[in-house]
Design a protein around this nucleic acid. Structure first.
Lengths: 338, 338
DNA sequence: TCGATTCGACGAAGCGCTTCGACAACGGAG
DNA sequence: CTCCGTTGTCGAAGCGCTTCGTCGAATCGA
């Protein structure tokens, strides 16, 4: 592999001159510059990243802590990982994945070894030990999602405003004429873990229920398919029958829809279904009114905040306002069911 | 941040001694070893990765080239990325994501700068320019998926045996008594791009059709939802009616199933549905007989092959045998439809 | 014409680590 | 008692890059 010395020799200059051509931090004559550039092109030279990092104490790498529960996979995580990587490149950074089930150990290793300049944490939980560890190391960090006020005052984060998102869904549904609404919230275990999106979603539903006067029954989702079906069936079997279903826990959406169909309910004539959030693949959901998770916007924001954090700027928080996706509107309840 | 010199001073030894304790490449007395270990623990010392890499020309990082068509996201890619990262850690490697739409430029940059020791390429196409670029750089490379014989003789790869997988699905379906089968193949654009899995899947269907004597109608899938529905409807409307549907293009599965339901066909009584491959989220598919994509097994294999390739070993190829997933079997056709 | 200034390029130091050769200290063999 | 092999540790070199101080040459004003 070619080194800066090789380039210098070929161009007939000193290594430092090559370096200055590359960085532009000192003036180099037109003539010398083009000789150096020619030599670089001929040799296919790339500066060795390790040497740069050793000198400058900057790796131009972000580490992304991907949530990892053994045996489980949340489809959205992969999508975020890829989009964040895209966004980071726009700032000149590469992204290293950290999927160790023991997130703390992995982050210590990577932060300690200088492999990365900053960390992005996904799926942060209440009193997350990773947050504490990174703070102790004084390692620049940005969080995707929020919830725990104490930790987060000192760190940057980005999140969809889940409270506003669910509130918006309820408001729009009520505005379409629905008076009896089921809100299918996050799953039991997410609520038990007090995940930010789960908590904020519940808040939004309550808020908008008060505001609109509609009757909103909140039902937590379940990881287990049988439980899920039973719970949905009982929620929809209430009389007078609910006319709209707002779903935040989208992962088992096919199951939910199949159960709705099995009950003989047509969507949207008998039951309006509104989604809050997104699945990574959009197939089969475009037909439903929904409030999308702005993955691209969130990814761009988290990459930006992580890069900023390297520069010791004070922490910033971005709460993204929800928007109803363009597409089908919410169908009013049938006259018979009012 | 603590350096090896700090550790050495604290332990009252030379820096080289600390290095030897860490690497174990020379014998160091019990006494000195424990003094060094104590100093390391007290200072929270981690060797600087850049310095190591500079000396040893080994970064202990793999670069993963994630396929990236702007605006599109294939749900399986994220899942593979995460599982490959997991597997690589087992070999002591971290994984860097490369999501540049211009894959060649990104790989040149990363390979040239020594940021990674080997590359893993996902979704390799016929005459993929990335493969050529990496070969020119003599950069260790492993491919996930296969298709183009010429390139691949020199490189390691892993793949599910798609031909055998589809053939197995057809065989099992025929064995259950079905004589008129629709094979829902990869999408038009995948076939046009001559993707390995698409080609091999078609081969498998033809092979097993000859073998079993069943009538297998091959229908390519489509990216566009309307086209998809129309095509499926016409395939299933043939008379005498097909009694089984084998699906390789799973991404729009919800759409397919909803169209089947819309035609008034019950699954599996009127139409047996068999899946080949997997979606990243299993919700809603467990109920169907299927041949899973062995993501974990493939990820483990590709990580292993990539690490091996660093050691200049000759290329190896792993073709993974398909297996019918445990779960519901294939329901025979109803007597009336025979 | 001569000192002062500017311009462009150079040389060397040093980032933190590994590794090779050297070298005390020690013990056993001759 | 000397010699030599072993054992455990040290010192220095060097990986490739950036950056600071320096310096010759060209330029300019007086």
């Amino acid at each position: 592999m070619a080194t800066i010395k090789d380039v210098a020799e070929r161009a007939g200059v000193a290594p430092s001159t090559v370096s200055y051509v590359l960085s532009g931090s000192r003036k180099i004559s037109e003539e010398t510059t083009s000789a150096v550039r020619a030599a670089i092109a001929e040799l296919g030279y790339h500066p060795r990243a390790s040497a740069r990092t050793l000198r400058s104490a900057r790796s131009e790498v972000l580490v992304l802590a991907v949530p990892r529960e053994p045996g489980k996979y949340r489809a959205m995580d992969g999508r975020f990982a890829i989009e964040i990587s895209d966004a980071a490149r726009g700032h000149g950074y590469d992204v290293l994945m950290m999927t160790d089930p023991d997130g703390v150990g992995g982050l210590r290793r990577i932060a300690g070894s200088g492999l990365a300049d900053a960390a992005i944490l996904m799926a942060v939980a209440q009193e997350d030990p990773r947050v504490a560890a990174l703070r102790d190391l004084r390692f620049p960090t940005a969080l995707l999602g929020h919830g725990d006020e104490r930790d987060e005052a000192e760190l940057s984060w980005v999140d969809l405003d889940w409270e506003a998102a669910v509130a918006l869904a309820v408001r729009e549904t009520a505005a379409a004429g629905h008076r009896r609404i089921v809100f299918w919230a996050s799953a039991d275990h997410e609520i038990a873990a007090r995940r930010g999106y789960a908590m904020h979603g519940l808040d939004g539903a309550r808020l908008a229920a008060r505001e609109t006067g509609a009757e909103v029954r909140v039902r937590p989702s379940a990881a287990d398919e049988a439980a899920l079906r039973a719970r949905l069936r009982s929620a929809l079997a209430a009389r007078p029958a609910p006319t709209a279903l707002i779903v935040q826990h989208l992962i088992p959406l096919p199951v939910l829809l199949s159960e709705v169909a099995a009950m003989g309910l047509r969507v949207p004539e008998d039951l309006a279904v509104v989604l809050v959030g997104s699945l990574p693949e959009e197939h089969g959901t475009q037909a439903l009114p929904r409030i999308d998770l702005p993955v691209g916007q969130m990814s761009a924001a988290i990459a930006r905040l992580a890069v900023e954090a390297i520069g010791q700027t004070p922490p910033r928080h971005e709460l993204i306002a929800p928007r109803l996706a363009p597409g089908p509107g919410i169908v009013p309840p049938s006259p018979a069911s009012r």
